[in-house]
């Protein structure tokens, strides 16, 4: 990677190896996330994208390799210490707290008292539905509302980097559109590392991409180069793109 050592990186991952139990899940993932960008991680199911996010956050700590965030080595630190350095996490299964109300789900993410009040306008501006549902317990929300809550929760404290895992999974098309708008909006203030199976969404949002395959990072670069490279897309991402027409559509929209 040409720009791996540039000062401009908020996050730099160098050759991490992660094991879960006996299984060697990540066998050398390297990536970099420049400040102020949206970078998307692509790859087939089970390639190791989610584990990469969890390794960065310290939830599945890497056994070897380096993770440099904001100029500091963070590998080996406890997850809550890493999160408190300003990293927000939106997990793939949403993982909102079902027995807590919407308000409590947001409140629990506060790192300092008043975090929620400070960012309430921004959050409810992105997701007006949540303000209406504020008293409802989490298990009464629909899938889309849960996803919005999960993203909103990551916006409560002052975060420099957001790790967002599959925000479009299981959402209706109209909600995907809304989610995309929200991510585009929040990325103006925050750097985003995104995992996204929906290639249309990924290609429209992200400036940069990283392809993970079989636990290794195999390719990275600018999104606008990737959409031109049909062979590469088919080789690594074939499964995640449904039809030939869909792909054509993407090319047209980018052309």
């Amino acid at each position: 990677m040409s720009d791996a050592n540039s000062e401009n990186n908020l996050l730099l991952v160098e050759d991490i190896n992660t094991f879960i139990g006996q299984f060697h899940i990540l066998e050398g993932v390297s990536l970099n996330v420049p400040k102020g960008s949206i970078t998307v991680m692509l790859g087939r199911n089970g390639a190791g994208k989610t584990t990469t996010l969890k390794s960065i956050l310290g939830l599945t700590p890497p056994r070897t390799g380096k993770i440099i965030y904001d100029g500091m080595e963070i590998q080996g630190k406890r997850a809550f210490n890493i999160a408190n350095l300003g990293i927000g996490y939106v997990p793939e299964n949403r993982a909102i707290f079902r027995s807590l109300s919407v308000l409590e789900n947001l409140k629990i993410a506060e790192r300092e008292k008043g975090d929620l009040d400070k960012h309430a306008d921004f959050i409810f501006g992105l997701f007006p539905d949540l303000e209406r549902l504020i008293k409802l317990p989490g298990n009464h929300l629909s899938g889309g509302q849960q996803q919005m809550l999960a993203v909103a929760r990551a916006l409560v404290p002052e975060n420099k980097l957001l790790l967002i895992d599959e925000p479009s999974e299981g959402l209706a098309p109209i909600l995907i559109q809304q989610m995309m708008e929200a991510i585009r909006e929040l990325s103006k203030a925050t750097t985003v590392l995104l995992v996204e199976q929906n290639f249309i969404m990924a290609s429209q949002l992200a400036e940069r991409y990283i392809i993970i395959d079989d636990g290794k990072s195999v390719k990275s670069g600018l999104m606008k180069d990737l959409v031109q490279d049909k062979d590469l897309i088919h080789h690594y991402l074939g499964a995640s793109i449904k039809t030939r027409e869909e792909l054509e559509e993407i090319y047209e929209s980018k052309a």
Partner: peptide, 24 residues
Amino acid sequence: SRLGMIIRAGVQDPQMVEALGINV
């Protein structure tokens, strides 16, 4: 209390609570 909120959340998903920056 905030502690109670964290306990209720932790019953369901301690890992996510940790990911929010709370020392579980």
